[in-house]
Design a protein around this nucleic acid. Sequence first.
RNA 1: GGCGGGGUAGCCAAGUGGUAAGGCCGCGGUCUGCAAAACCGCUAUUCGCGGGUUCGAUUCCCGCCUCCGCCUCCA
Length: 466
Amino acid sequence: MSIRFYNTYSRSVEEFIPIEGCRVRIYTCGPTVYSYAHIGNYRAYIFEDLLQRHLEARGFQVTRVMNITDVDDKTIRGSREAGLSLNDFTAKFKKSFFEDLDFLRIQRADQFPEATDPSNIGRMIEMIDELMTKDIAYQADDKSIYFRINRFPQYGRLAHLNLDELRPTSRVQSDEYEKEHIGDFALWKAWDEKDGQVAWDSPWGKGRPGWHLECSAMSTRLLGPEIDIHCGGVDNIFPHHEAEIAQSESATGHHFVRYWLHCAHLLVDGQKMSKSLGNFYTLRDVIEHGYTGREIRYALLRVNYRLPLNFTFDGMAEARQSLLRIDQWLERLQDLAGDATPEPAFPNADTFFVALDDDLNISAALAELYDRIRATNRAMDRVELTPGQAAALLEWWEGVNQILQLHRDIPSATPEVLALLADRAAARSEKNWTRSDELRYEIEKLGWTIKDTKAGQKLSKITANK
RNA sequence: GGCGGGGUAGCCAAGUGGUAAGGCCGCGGUCUGCAAAACCGCUAUUCGCGGGUUCGAUUCCCGCCUCCGCCUCCA
């Protein structure tokens, strides 16, 4: 069974065939560290996480790089306003970014190259030099170096844009110098007073790298001239990825990327997030509403990456309830399985993974999971499931969860809670219901709720919800 | 204006030229000292609108309405 992906370049679903056997090289556009990343950013990173985990589940050996943009207009402006050096300013957001990845159970990329790393700056200068030699890049009157898009006939093919129809928008006008073509983009930005201490020497004078070049330099340096998959948000298709193709292929002479995968936008309450609309959420904001990492992960994961995902707090509540269903099922299976030896694989154990093979069809994959949950719950109701079968299902879940990462956090109860719980068990064995209810109330005050089941009392942590 | 993605039950959301997965909510039942939870069952003659092709279309074609995004540095 083959894996298929929708390739933005061809605008069609294609069978995935890596360049080299079962090795897969992926480059993913990472954060610009000028503020805390928002949940839309994390939707993209969770999609990339799903991509990597599924490829690994299918036996591919994945090498993934994610860049950190730590120099650009926004980081420079932010550091100046904060009165900090660029490094001190971005350090804080780099740190929070990695904390967030862990919180959302996103697997770390193999490397997180930073734009300001000297080896990356070196590679960028090397590439510009190559482009200058080929006369594909030129230095304008403002001393910046630009890429001459007329020298790259395929420019616009990824985005399906016709260059003659590029319309100048307000965003362009503030950034215009002496470019030959309105679409020419900066490879190297000449130093400006506003840049303060932020500058590197280059053969063309003091300055800093253009944003697009960073990804081309890091991708080709760390993964080679041609990679299998390049991911990012749809908003990166133009001009960012278009520029990357132009620079990389012009500089190296190699085809750059086999499969372009783009993640659709996250909307909030049906609209694009924006600070002025008041619907802008960082991960921290959602956490403050009382949601856990896996709940947020589920909410951002459950819709196919190519569809716009509407984030709402109703959706968060739905995510919480859905996860509870999985938790309860696992608990039942564990109680039944005990330490039984798993029975041989059951039929159709592969359907979950087969669903993901189809361009990461997560909705269909989750439906397979829920179908299995319902079928086995029914079997358990009828006492038709053996401990060995339950153990096999738990083993199957391990594989599924290696991709989903939706297992419950098991918070440990304090000794105080455990002591009250023991007292309550004693009271219950004497059928002292009054005492039992008192103790339940005591335990609730400590943040835990109890369910009385045939197998005894079950503790669970009360999740805060503002 | 150009390019792209959508419109499927109250909400979220799969899917197929052959008669609608799954999740949440709701309702009914089981369980239960109580409670809560859980589990099981039920819940779209219908897939934005109008035509066309077809034995048959939600699925293909044409037109329209509507929502969202991109069109130079936002994932």
